[in-house]
């Protein structure tokens, strides 16, 4: 399509500033997946109901299918690619959600993923809940916090268990040392 009607915007994605030309009706999920090539953010419904497209947007959990790309101008966005992998050398700002890689390890231990389609959203939502709960984490709070994320495969048990396990450990032992 012609450039008329597209908007230019700049977004910081996974710690790097990038410029995009976007159609007014493009969603942020489309921008991330199609223009930025970050396909780790999944589309399960485009209706705001499944949580597969969850990203970190200016520090908050956001469903990227519900947000227009133009609304993301000058924001700071983190996707699973940036959050789960060790930072590249040229990354300018520190990676948020420091607990996420550890939660990913717990997912693996607890068989908290099968097809993995819900997993990026679950990891981001799960880490935010874990961090928000602080010392007061328990299964009920995690289940409630994950009530916007659908998993069709696992039955959730391993997911909930992983969040509780990782963030219980973190708060009881902030230095992250393994208990004896």
């Amino acid at each position: 399509m012609s450039g008329t009607g597209t908007h230019q915007l700049s977004i910081s994605i996974n710690g790097r500033h990038e410029n995009f030309d976007v159609e007014p009706r493009s969603t942020l999920a489309e921008l991330l997946r199609e223009q930025a090539g970050l396909t780790g953010t999944k589309i399960g419904c485009e209706q705001g109901s499944c949580g597969a497209c969850t990203i970190l947007f200016d520090g908050e959990q956001v469903r990227s299918c519900l947000m227009f790309a133009v609304q993301a101008a000058d924001s700071e966005v983190w996707t699973i690619e940036g959050l789960a992998s060790p930072p590249p050398e040229n990354q300018t700002s520190p990676t948020p959600l420091a607990g996420l890689p550890e939660l990913a390890e717990a997912f693996k231990r607890n068989h908290a993923l099968q097809c993995g389609f819900c997993t990026p959203g679950m990891l981001i939502a799960g880490t935010l809940i874990g961090e928000a709960c602080g010392g007061a984490i328990n299964e009920e709070r995690v289940k409630e916090g994950l009530s916007g994320n659908i998993c069709r495969c696992t039955g959730y048990q391993g997911i909930v268990q992983s969040v509780v396990e990782v963030f219980e450990l973190k708060t009881s032992n902030p230095a992250g040392e393994k208990p004896q």
């Binding site: 997946r33 690619e81 789960a84 231990r109 993923l113 993995g116 990026p120 990891l123």
Partner: peptide, 19 residues
């Protein structure tokens, strides 16, 4: 043994059809 599938799913690098 832990699943060999998991690492690439956990960091979002595994490709599905829409990717």
């Amino acid at each position: 043994v832990l699943r060999f599938e998991d690492d690439a799913l956990l960091n979002g690098s595994r490709r599905f059809i829409d990717d």
